[in-house]
């Protein structure tokens, strides 16, 4: 990581703390903000957050590792989450998954070689009446068919 990048990251965190207050309860919102922008919360960022909130770095790592939507290592540029809960499962989530795996030439839970997509399972998107459902970044899509799912991915930059 370049020094400028580090400084920029620190500044970002400082800005968020200024907005949210220097308190432990700001932690998740800060992590979320960094995650949104950088698609992960690096070890450097974790330590800076810990320093600026005056908590231990391991506490930041502990919290980060607890939540499914936060991660310490970078994922692909786009995050695809496919609902695996029983309602979507019954509506054919397996077929969707296999179609995506074939199309992107990868296995679920991994990232494509061009780093464009990370595809994962997610526990219940709350769209059980419209399954199978998946989320691409912060947008959700329902009543998927294999064709529709692949088409949606092809539109993603």
């Amino acid at each position: 990581m370049l020094v400028e990048e580090k400084n920029a990251l620190t500044e970002e965190i400082e800005l968020m703390i200024k907005k949210l207050g220097k308190k432990r309860s700001a932690l998740l919102s800060i992590l979320h903000g960094i995650q949104m922008k950088h698609r992960h919360v690096s070890e450097y960022a974790q330590q800076e957050i810990a320093r600026l909130l005056d908590i231990h770095p391991v506490e930041v790592f502990s919290v980060l590792s607890f939540y499914a939507f936060l991660n310490a290592t970078p994922k692909g540029r786009n995050l695809v989450r496919i609902c695996r809960t029983i309602s979507c499962d019954m509506k054919g989530k397996d077929i969707i998954v296999r179609a995506i795996e074939r199309e992107l030439n990868m296995k679920i839970g991994h990232t494509t070689s061009d780093n464009k997509f990370t595809v994962e399972y997610v526990n219940c998107l709350g769209l059980c009446d419209e399954g199978p459902a998946m989320a691409i970044n912060d947008q959700v899509f329902t009543k998927l068919t294999p064709e529709k799912a692949v088409k949606l991915l092809s539109k993603v930059k």
Binding site: T85, I86, S87, N123, C124, G126, L127, C128, D129
Partner: peptide
């Protein structure tokens, strides 16, 4: 935090 599988009324 409507996380119970099969629940979507809060949405």
């Amino acid at each position: 935090d409507e996380g119970e599988p099969g629940t979507f009324k809060d949405r």
